[in-house]
Amino acid sequence: MLDIIYVLEMIGIVAFAISGMIVARSKNMDPVGVFTIGFITALGGGTLRDLIMDNHPLYWIKHEEQPMLILAMAIVFSYWKRAERLRESRIVFPDAIGLGVFSILGAQLALDLGHSWFVASLLGVMTGTFGGALRDTLCNEVPYIFRKDQIYASISFAGCWLYFVCQWFLDNEALPLTIGLLFIVIVRMLAVRFDIRLQRDPNNS
């Protein structure tokens, strides 16, 4: 199970880093900026989670291959000509993958440290959303988590609870994780595709 979790972590890091680097290139940032935004997007949520739970050393410090991977990706993105033509709309899918992976894994780590389902779900949401919020803030964009036209954090929260319930009923470690992860990714993509919102402006309805 640990190998599966590590693979998912790396997938989430790559996905979130790509979303950050696409936005950074769209803002004409240099290689340092591309690395910084990619790093913050991929590892910002996990860093906040570890600080809140007093979990030291920080996870990415114990696993230095993760920031090293982001640095290598930043170099490629900075000098890859086609990256200049990637639009910010392209970040939706990798961002959804990162949201799903880090929401579930963040919640599971909180459970492992003895926290309740409610606290673990909140920490899962923080892990899944904080890096993207920092990315958007630093790039002078309104973060997804605060946009009225986006269902974002609520999907993460619901996915964490689905994961907990599946763990309770299913005698299998990998299946609940897969269900929770796919729920977050699929619902997030459907929300964007069909403009599903928690609240609509009555003046525009």
Rank of each mutant, 00 (worst) to 15 (best):
V165D: 03
V125L: 09
V23P: 12
V125H: 00
F169A: 07
I97T: 11
T36W: 05
D136Q: 02
Y6D: 14
L86F: 13
S26H: 08
A158W: 13
A110D: 03
Y152M: 12
D54H: 14
W168Q: 11
L58E: 05
I40R: 09
V192Q: 06
F16K: 01
I196H: 07
V34F: 06
D149T: 07
M53H: 14
R87F: 03
D54Q: 14
L58W: 04
G45A: 10
K81M: 04
F102N: 11
W60T: 02
L134A: 13
V192E: 09
I18M: 07
L198A: 15
R135T: 01
R147Q: 10
G20A: 05
P57H: 11
L170Q: 09
L175M: 13
H115P: 00
V7D: 06
I184G: 05
P94H: 09
L43F: 04
F35T: 00
A191H: 02
V23S: 12
W161P: 00
P94L: 09
V192S: 02
S78W: 09
I22L: 08
N28D: 15
G20F: 08
S156E: 10
A42V: 06
W60K: 03
D195N: 15
I184Y: 03
R90I: 00
L175F: 05
N140V: 10
R135F: 07
I70L: 04
T36D: 03
T47E: 03
I186Y: 06
G132W: 08
C166A: 15
R82N: 07
A153Q: 10
E141S: 00
I196G: 01
G45M: 10
D112H: 11
I186E: 03
A17P: 06
H56V: 10
G106T: 11
F194W: 15
F183P: 02
A174N: 13
I75N: 01
L8Q: 10
M10N: 12
L123R: 07
F130W: 15
S19V: 07
Y6I: 15
F130E: 08
F93S: 02
I179Y: 02
V125E: 08
Q167D: 09
L51D: 07
L138D: 03
V76S: 05
L138F: 15
H63W: 04
W161M: 15
S116C: 02
R90F: 05
G159K: 04
G20S: 06
R197H: 11
Y144E: 05
G180D: 07
D171R: 12
M189Y: 13
G46K: 09
M189F: 08
L190A: 02
C160R: 07
M21Q: 13
R135I: 02
L113I: 00
L51G: 03
V119G: 02
S205Y: 14
G180T: 06
F146H: 07
R200Y: 14
A153L: 10
G132R: 09
R49W: 12
I5N: 07
Y79N: 10
S154C: 08
